[in-house]
């Protein structure tokens, strides 16, 4: 990629400090880029730091008890150095976010039309009537039938899929340059999921918005992300173009994730390979590989030396004993 990235995250580290409790390192030196119009994926199991990463980019983590270091540059501007009010100016307009739970992310006491026009009036300086007209258009864009009537409905009167569409409409109302979608479809059933994902990628293509898709579901990533980052224990363990990542996963964790997805071409009766253990019993990255306790390819070195991230041929890999490229 020769064009300079819109979002440049370098060495992002987020530590939760609480009195009387050991520190939690939620994100531990994460770096990635997103260019305008690009879709990247951030994948990993529960607790690996996906949401904390996105909240850090939005600067929505609480000021107290959280230590953020590293650098988050948006179009050359260091977000971590901005004052609260400067950051508030950028939220919505430059970076926006779609949250996981479509019901609780909408204000229950305000009709959805008002929640859209509020953003339009704030960020695009529209008058009341103009904002209403634009809101109708946006609801129509995201595939909500009878949009004019829907303006006056309350969130609890909409189905889950409709709510998520409304949320997307609100996020798009600001025309953000970067959109972070944190598991935008986990709460929805499979058919609606597919519709919403299709909608998101269409919108991104049309508006040139950069999109960070956060998910624990590799199926979602397979469909729409150019580059996929696999996160484990707060660090990126593998990153590659999606075809390369899915074709030849090199990190044992990625390999395991892919093998635990049922495949149509797998012979009937074959057992699904589940990754043993869970994040809870991981080792810290200090002096070892955090995945070592669960790794089927673990070596003596893995328990003594932290693997460094190495890049070769456009693939980033953090592993002492990767799966051979010819395997599978």
């Amino acid at each position: 990629m020769t064009t300079h990235p819109l979002l440049k995250v370098r060495d992002l580290r987020v530590v939760f400090r609480r009195r009387g409790e050991p520190d939690t390192v939620a994100v531990d030196g994460v770096s990635f880029d997103v260019a305008a119009g690009q879709v990247i994926g951030l994948v990993g199991e529960s607790g690996c730091g996906k949401s904390v990463t996105s909240m850090a980019v939005m600067r929505l983590l609480p000021a107290r008890g959280v230590e953020i270091s590293g650098s988050i540059e948006l179009d050359g501007v260091e977000l971590l150095a901005l004052s609260d009010s400067e950051m508030r100016e950028r939220r919505g307009r430059d970076v926006s976010m779609i949250f996981q739970d479509p019901l609780s992310s909408l204000n229950p006491v305000i009709p959805i039309g008002l929640q859209i026009t509020e953003v339009l009036r704030r960020h695009r300086g529209m008058g009341k009537a103009q904002a209403r007209a634009e809101a109708v258009e946006l609801l129509d864009r995201v595939g909500i039938p009878e949009p004019r009537r829907r303006l006056d409905t309350y969130p609890h009167q909409l189905s889950g899929g409709m709510r998520q569409r409304a949320l997307i409409a609100i996020a798009l109302a600001c025309r953000p340059r970067l959109l972070i979608a944190d598991e935008p479809t986990t709460a929805l059933d499979v058919t609606i999921q597919a519709q919403i994902l299709g909608l998101l990628s269409d919108l991104v293509r049309e508006t040139g918005t950069a999109l960070v898709m956060i998910t624990h579901d590799l199926g979602i990533v397979a469909g729409m992300c150019e580059t996929v980052n696999v996160l484990y224990g707060g660090r990126i363990v593998e990153r590659a173009q999606r075809h390369r990542l899915f074709g030849t996963p090199r990190h044992p964790y990625t390999h395991g994730l892919l093998r635990s997805i049922p495949r149509l071409d797998s012979p009937p009766g074959e057992k699904l390979a589940a990754i043993s253990g869970s994040m809870a019993d991981n080792l810290p990255w200090a002096h070892s590989c955090a995945f070592a306790p669960r790794c089927p390819r673990v070596l003596e070195t893995c328990l003594d030396i932290t693997p460094d991230a190495e890049t070769s041929g456009g693939r980033l890999l953090r592993c002492h004993n990767p799966v051979p490229a010819s395997a599978e």
Binding site: R88, R91, M97, S104, L106, V119
Partner: peptide, 23 residues
């Protein structure tokens, strides 16, 4: 969630407090 969401949209602080939190 909805207050965090509306903060993520850059809505003015007074509006967040008076329109989204208070009611």
């Amino acid at each position: 969630d909805h207050v965090v969401a509306v903060t993520a949209l850059g809505v003015r602080r007074s509006a967040v407090v008076l329109r989204h939190m208070l009611p």
